[in-house]
Amino acid sequence: MPILTVKEAINQALVESFTNDKNVILMGEDIAGGKGREQYQGTQDAWGGPFGVTQGLLTKFGPERVRDTTIAEAGFFGAAVGAAMTGLRPIVELMYVDFAGVCFDQLMNQAAKMRYMFGGKQNVPMVVRTVVGAGFRAGSEHSQTLYSLYTHIPGLKVVAPYDAIDAKGLLLSSIIDNDPVIFMEHKRLYMTKCEVPENLKPIPLGKGRIRKKGKDITIVAIQRMNLFAEEAANLLADEDIECEIIDPRTYSPLDESLIYESVKKTGKVIIIDESNPKCSLASEISSLISENCFTDLKAPILKLTAPHTPVPFSPPMEDFYIPSTKKIIKGIKTILKY
């Protein structure tokens, strides 16, 4: 089976979607980059966005469908809404999720509400691909995750894959989905690899994944936090503690029953989210579990999140900001005492 990086997997999903449906288009800043220049046609260097994810698309599909935009997010996000309503399947790239501020209206008020507000007659089949996450020493304005900001809004679907197989399968689904989908790519995961089957089918939105089976405690891990959850689980296995790791993968819709089944079995749960704590995915999942698994719980639910601060730049402070394997192990041991 081919081994792909998350970056390659996303690129493959884009290429396949472009091939399958001529209505798929891509808009964003420097998604082609220097390659847009005539004398560079056919040469290897395209920026393909700052992380090179969309490299090669312009050559394969041409400038009509792969459009480099100006730094005008409100403009091209709104254009995606209109294009989606009238027959295209636009994918727009928000270079960093932190830039949402300048174009959020088009998502929150236009894309998300079109269907509902106008009596269910209108679909907005668009995808926002965006880059999230701390750990890149990129400072306060290039490191947020903001998962809950999008999840909060009815009408938007929210996807945050961890590995290459999920990235590809979920992006394929997001593009054929008839609702607006926010597809979040973690910058620290782009170069991580796993096996991805040749003819991978779309992975349905709203289905979580059990990444590791166990009976002692449930770890709900959000996107990159799966990495640390797995490290912690492996270390704890040496002490005969069996952790069950659940990656919800999509947050709207959320695979609630998968989480509940696990909690019913273990009775103990820790939720790991690298976002700020207040009104976060962690607090949402925690409240759902306490409402739905009250009698199954044998210990208080533990949320492990970043502190209530912006993402700091300096390495010791940023490392402290991000939940760590060590903190997860400590948290789990506290819960297991109950």
């Binding site: 306060s140 730049f313 300096s314």
Partner: peptide, 16 residues
């Protein structure tokens, strides 16, 4: 360099 005596106490970095 991300040090504590930086102009933003290491919170900002080169970009800020």
């Amino acid at each position: 360099f991300g040090r504590s005596t930086g102009i933003c106490k290491g919170k900002g970095g080169s970009m800020h």
